[in-house]
Design a binder for these strands. Structure first.
Length: 179
DNA sequence: TCATTGATTTCA
DNA sequence: GAAATCAATGAT
C-alpha cells in the first residue's frame, strides 16, 4: 500500500548543493530524469522520475512571481538555490518549485510532471506537497530531496504553459523542458 | 467547454 | 477593509 510510484526506481545519490546554485536554464533541463524522493512520516521513501519542468527566471521574467517584487510569498525565491517554493493557484492546487541560482537572483523550476502523474497540480497532490514544505531545504531535508541515479535522458523543449498574461516576449521563451 | 476554490495582491 | 486575480484540473 501507498506505493504510488509506478516504477520502483533504484536509489541514487542526493544532488550536491552546488547543483541548485547555478542558472535556472541549466538546472531545469538537468532535473529531467532525476529522481524526486518523498518520505512521509514513518514510511519508506517513494521515488518518482521527473519528466517535465519549467524555468522561471528573475525579476525581468513577467511570468515569474518575483517580477512583482519581494513579498512574503516570493521571499524564498530570493534566497540561495536549493530550497522549495510552494504556492496555491486557483484556490486548490499546490505548485511545487525548486529555487535555483545565487541569493538575490530570484529563479525557480516548476515541477510540471513526474512519471505517471503529469500536471503540476497532480504532482503535489500525489506527493502530499502543501504549504508546510515552503522553504524546505533540499540539501538537508529528511522528507523530500532529489537523487541522481545516473540515467541519461534526451530533453525536448517548448513554450511555457498557462502564462498568457505575461506577454508574447515571455510566452514564447522555450523554457519548458520534457522527455 | 466550464465550474470549482481560496490565498495573494491590488485598489480604495 | 473589499474586490479581482490566478504557472490548473476534472467532469461534462
Amino acid at each position: 500500500m501507498n506505493q504510488r510510484s509506478l516504477i520502483d526506481r533504484k536509489a541514487g545519490s542526493r544532488l550536491p548543493p552546488d547543483f541548485f546554485r547555478r542558472d535556472v536554464l541549466l538546472v531545469a533541463p538537468e532535473l529531467l530524469g532525476k529522481i524526486l524522493v518523498v518520505r512521509s512520516a514513518a514510511e519508506i521513501p517513494e521515488r518518482f522520475m521527473i519528466n517535465e519542468t519549467e524555468a522561471y527566471r528573475g525579476v525581468e521574467d513577467k511570468a515569474c512571481h518575483a517580477s512583482k517584487g519581494r513579498t512574503e510569498r516570493t521571499d524564498v525565491m530570493f534566497r540561495t538555490g536549493g530550497r522549495i517554493y510552494v504556492y496555491l493557484i486557483y484556490g486548490m492546487h499546490w505548485m511545487l518549485n525548486f529555487v535555483t541560482g545565487p541569493a538575490n537572483e530570484p529563479q525557480a523550476v516548476l515541477i510540471r510532471g513526474v512519471e505517471g502523474y503529469n500536471g503540476p497540480g497532480r504532482v503535489s497532490k500525489v506527493l502530499g506537497i502543501d504549504k508546510s514544505f515552503y522553504g524546505e531545504d533540499l540539501n538537508i531535508s529528511e522528507r523530500i530531496w532529489i537523487e541522481d541515479n545516473g540515467d541519461k535522458v534526451s530533453v525536448k523543449t517548448g513554450k511555457r504553459i498557462g502564462i498568457d498574461y505575461a506577454g508574447e516576449k515571455w510566452v514564447n521563451k522555450p523554457w519548458r523542458f520534457f522527455l
